[in-house]
């Protein structure tokens, strides 16, 4: 079980600010992705799921055939992204937010992986070969999970106050 311990690692100032900045920036990205989906009544994960290739394609087909499953995926995406974003920015249960973010990005990556042998009908906004932004952001979240900062700067400092004094 996860027990955050404040100052587990002694960061110097540059390291600390660097890590906090990364946490807040990724949080901002998640939060805006979530909010923009919530505020756009036309958004649906269906188009993304339809494009799915590789190991998850069978799984996405099952979701697509069931409108309530699509609605559930939409809901989880909209509010999951928003919650992860808020958690990272505020440093509130930030490690859980990070882990959830890794899982979510992992699903996005595996649903539409940028492998050479796969062709998508929609062009991507950049040029990717195996490595894409999802993979990089996922890796960055992993770094944030193993180098936590929310118990130094973040609401976790108050939440996990008692544990940290042991």
């Amino acid at each position: 079980m996860y027990t955050p311990v404040r100052n587990q690692i002694n960061y110097n100032q540059f390291q600390l600010y660097g890590l906090i900045s990364l946490r807040v920036l990724i949080g901002w990205h998640f939060l805006y992705e979530g909010i923009s989906k919530i505020t756009n009544s036309y958004w649906s994960s269906a188009a993304f799921l339809m494009e799915s290739k590789w190991i998850f394609s069978g799984w996405t087909q099952i979701i697509l055939t069931n409108p309530s499953a699509v609605a559930a995926v939409d809901f989880l995406n909209m509010w999951g992204l928003t919650a992860i974003g808020l958690g990272l920015i505020c440093g509130c249960f930030a490690r859980w937010a990070g882990i959830a973010g890794i899982i979510l990005l992992g699903i996005y990556y595996l649903t539409n992986p940028p492998f050479l042998e796969l062709e998508y009908s929609m062009p991507t906004e950049g040029s990717y070969m195996i490595v894409n932004k999802n993979l990089i952001e996922m890796c960055a979240l992993y770094v944030l999970t193993v180098f936590p900062t929310s118990t130094i700067v973040g609401i976790d400092r108050l939440i996990f106050k008692n544990e940290s004094k042991h």
């Binding site: 807040v24 901002w28 920015i89 108050l158």
Partner: peptide
């Protein structure tokens, strides 16, 4: 100091929602 450190990144949320509100 504890409070300031705990809430240190909250202003970012302020900027976020201010910009979001303006955009909307």
């Amino acid at each position: 100091r504890e409070i300031i450190k705990a809430l240190g990144t909250i202003p970012v949320l302020g900027v976020f929602f201010y910009k979001l509100f303006k955009k909307h």
